[in-house]
């Protein structure tokens, strides 16, 4: 009986040992895989210039449109202070895109997860908060008394929809996903290549957001130029 019990206890001991072996083996190799996975480097296509150069072309258009208004030559009916206010807001947003920090971030040849995280941070702080919310969001309120322009009031509902779309974009999701890159997840080469690649997908999503905001600003600047030229 004693011998049987001892052998039984030994068997349980070996089973526990086997389970520990399996767990540690699994965790060790999962760690190596995870290490390999998160050190992926993404190199964007440099066709027709870098992504930053493409953005700057649009920024130049915005600056030229903003410069269409001159207080000395303007002959339209719009309030002078409204026109000057819109001009300075457009220029402030253009400066956010010409900032040295963004230039350094977007002039890299290849990106790791940390770089894309910095891109998300810059977008949220300098583009969404400082440009869209602080500069432009009041234009979306048709009942606002901060401006007198009736033409601006007529387009404010459309501006509000566009700005709300930008503010409700997926940047928060991208940021959280990047922050959570320290959590193991089960994936294989196929899913990595076809479904999800953290650095590449996050970078492309962020470039999409930068372009969407620029498109909004460019559309607004075109409208502004039209008003400034008396159209």
């Amino acid at each position: 009986m004693k011998k049987f019990l001892v052998e039984y206890i030994n068997l349980i001991g070996k089973t526990v040992l086997g389970l520990v072996f399996g767990l540690s083996f699994f965790l060790l190799f999962l760690n190596f895989y995870h290490y390999k996975e998160i050190r992926t480097v993404y190199t964007p296509s440099q066709e027709n210039g870098t992504d930053y150069e493409k953005l700057l072309r649009q920024v130049d258009v915005i600056k030229q449109n903003a410069a269409a208004y001159s207080q000395n030559t303007y002959q339209g009916n719009e309030d002078v202070f409204d026109m000057l206010g819109m001009q300075s807001k457009l220029n402030a947003c253009a400066q956010a895109y010409e900032n040295e920090t963004l230039k350094n971030l977007l002039s890299k040849e290849s990106y790791v997860a940390e770089d894309v995280y910095e891109l998300v941070n810059y977008y949220q702080n300098s583009i969404l908060n400082d440009c869209i919310v602080l500069q432009f969001y009041s234009f979306g309120d048709s009942t606002s008394t901060t401006y007198k322009s009736e033409r601006l009031r007529s387009i404010s509902p459309f501006l509000k929809v566009e700005m709300d779309n930008l503010l409700n974009s997926s940047t928060g999701y991208v940021k959280n996903n990047l922050k959570n890159n320290d959590i193991y997840y089960f994936s294989n080469e196929d899913s990595k290549n076809t479904v999800f690649e953290l650095t590449k997908d996050s970078y492309q999503e962020m470039m999409g957001q930068y372009k969407s905001t620029l498109n909004f600003l460019e559309t607004f600047s075109n409208w502004y130029k039209n008003v400034a030229q008396g159209g």
Binding site: V6, I9, N10, G13, K14, V20, S24, L27
Partner: peptide
């Protein structure tokens, strides 16, 4: 911190198997 439960599991598992393997004929 996410790894600490696994760390406990492995080390306690080793300790338990160590104690159980001490018994022998």
């Amino acid at each position: 911190a996410n790894f600490i439960p696994f760390l406990n599991l492995m080390l306690y598992g080793l300790a338990i198997s160590n104690v159980l393997l001490m018994f022998h004929v």
